[in-house]
Write a protein that binds this DNA or RNA. Structure first.
Length: 427
RNA sequence: GGAUGGGUGGCCGAGCGGUUGAAGGCAGCGGUCUUGAAAACCGCCAGGGGGCAACCCCUCGUGGGUUCGAAUCCCACCCCAUCCGCCA
């Protein structure tokens, strides 16, 4: 959500910022409505002031036994005048708000121009794709050959884009999630959270999924929404709050299921576990002072990278270009993991600095040490990392010629000492 | 799902038609005192919006309504607590 005063101050700059997102200029129309709104509001307020004065006079008159009939008559007329102004101001306000809440965040100057993912920039890389010495399989080939990954069973239960895992693979999924939470709580200072997987409209609005992206979500019959990411409940924990500055930054992590309708993804990634309606993810959320969000963004991304490094995966960091950066983000780093079976880099984490965009929508502020409210906090979110995709990456990266999979050493304690998943590891 | 009681400023809590945007307390900030601290005392201290400004307007869960005037009365909805029922 944008501050209309910012647009008033620099309409050309705002239009230029939206142009980077491929959007037509809106500031002229918006500011015209804004001027009308303020005129109506000012006129209304003058009448309200008069009404308040009359009410006070009438009150005093009644107590002293004076005749207040004339004053009451004036007030009655005044009320009729106010109704028109009130509805006009309200309608304009709603119209302006409707436009503002559908506009994406302003991009950071560092974000490269470009319309789609082809313009994303690779910033760094850890490890290099290497020849495994045999023809690598894709994760679903590995999992199905082991008898531990079953898409047919999932289809019977729920339809396409779900999976059933068994035995060692089910345990590996659990191990990955546990391990990531432990890394972030022990090494990176995040507080572990358990949060609702169903949220209300206000929460979805606060982080920006609503009103524009309802089609991407699942909705319950009682009007709640299944979270597409723990970013929603975690970030909204500070909605409506005025936080003491000394309590910042607040770092939270949670392992949750995530639910996505994948409405626009028909035909993409139809095989395997890459794109599912339900998947688990460890999410990282930071609430920071505005001065510190850029540094926190770097720190958060590095925290996610730590997980990938410990899992002995090959990955690279990219910065998303203008056209690929999400609605609420000013700047997004994606981490892409190398999948030898697919011979492709695939997103496994996405870390965004939303600055005050979500905070403004949800009313999340902080109060400085001098006791004065000084403004909106900044919010950041990132995957630390997507568990399902980490499972895929582990399978494809650590697969062996005989069809077994070596488990990264950091996971051994979580696997009850198991170091390899092979055909007999059904459990 | 049924019943009852509640939602007031950062927190607690009074107010239950007429200078109440809101007593009092706690916390916070500034000061006096003190070698320093504590205590005591004094002062400040909700948010949002409009206006060049003086200043004004809005907000006591949300939305309507009654009234010259609503935190206070009426209606609907939301949320919370407790008890009952059901239940992992």
């Amino acid at each position: 959500m944008h501050d209309i005063r910012m647009i008033r101050t620099d309409p050309a700059g705002f239009d230029a910022a939206m142009a980077r997102r491929g959007l037509a200029p809106v500031s002229a129309a918006l500011l015209a409505q804004d001027a009308d709104r303020r005129a109506a509001q000012t006129a209304l307020q003058e009448k309200q002031a008069r009404r308040n004065a009359l009410a006070r006079e009438i009150g005093q008159g009644k107590r002293s036994g004076a005749d207040t009939a004339a004053l009451e008559a004036e007030a009655t007329v005044l009320r009729a005048d106010m109704e028109g102004l009130e509805s006009r101001a309200g309608a304009l306000d709603a119209a302006i708000r409707g436009v503002l809440e559908a506009l994406p965040n302003v991009l950071d100057p560092d974000v490269p121009d470009g319309a789609d993912e082809r313009a994303n920039l690779v910033l760094s890389q850890s490890g290099t794709p290497r020849d495994l010495g045999f023809q690598p399989k894709q994760h679903f080939e590995i999992g199905e050959a082991l008898g531990l990954m079953d898409f047919a069973a999932a289809a019977k239960l729920a339809g396409a884009r779900f999976v059933v895992l068994r035995g060692a693979l089910a345990r590996l999924e659990r191990a990955l999630g546990q391990f990531m939470i432990d890394v972030h709580t022990r090494e990176h200072g995040y507080t572990e959270m358990v949060v609702p997987s169903l949220v209300n409209d206000a929460a979805m609005y606060g982080t920006g999924q609503l009103p524009k992206f309802a089609d991407d979500l699942f909705r319950t019959t009682d009007g709640r929404w299944l979270i597409p990411t723990a970013e929603v409940p975690l970030t909204n924990t500070v909605a409506g709050e005025i936080l003491p500055e000394v309590s910042l930054p607040r770092r939270m992590t949670a392992l949750t299921d995530c639910f996505r309708s994948e409405a626009g993804a028909a035909g993409r990634d139809t095989r395997g576990m890459v794109r599912q309606h339900q998947f688990r993810k460890v999410e990282l959320v930071s609430i920071t002072h505005p001065d510190h969000s850029a540094a926190e963004h770097e720190r958060m991304t590095a925290s996610a990278e730590t997980v990938l490094r410990l899992l002995e995966l090959t990955y690279r960091r990219i910065v998303l270009c203008a056209g690929d950066t999400g609605f609420g983000s000013t700047k997004t780093f994606d981490l892409e993991v190398w999948l030898p079976g697919q011979q492709a880099w695939r997103e496994i984490s996405s870390c965004s600095n939303c600055r005050d965009f979500q905070a403004r929508r949800m009313g999340a502020r902080f109060r400085g040490a001098d006791g004065k409210p000084v403004g909106f906090v900044h919010t950041l979110n990132g995957s630390g990392v997507a568990v399902g995709r980490a499972l895929i990456a582990v399978l494809e990266t650590h697969q062996q010629a005989d069809g077994s999979v070596l488990i990264p050493q950091v996971l051994w304690p979580y696997m009850g000492g198991m170091e390899r998943i092979s055909g007999s590891a059904g459990g």
